[in-house]
Amino acid sequence: MQVKDIIQALQLTPRAGANGLDREISGGYVSDLLSDVMGHAREGQVWITIQAHKNVMAIASLKELAAVVLVRDRLPDEDTAAAANDESIPVLSTPLDAFEASGRLRDLLREG
């Protein structure tokens, strides 16, 4: 499953890094604490968070995450968007909250 394949179910709007929409998804991780993600997220996961500042992209890049989903219609900061484009890691917004977005992602991954 690729990032572009979850757009509809999670009601996502790509905000930056659209050149990475064909990245493969291995799972998901939900957290707003950066060191939690740094310590525990795994390569290829979709990171669901409310944090929209540039450091999110530093972590997404170092951990080689598939994408960042910003909940409750958060928009990436300008420098976040620029970093997403540089790294080809998509940042997408959803009107859903973290619980609902995670549930839908889990359902998709279970269905395969």
Binding site: D36, G39, N55
Partner: peptide, 14 residues
């Protein structure tokens, strides 16, 4: 910003 959760040094140790 989501830093300062007291997980940095434990992450380093691990």
């Amino acid at each position: 910003m989501g830093f300062g959760a007291g997980m940095g040094l434990p992450n380093i140790k691990k």
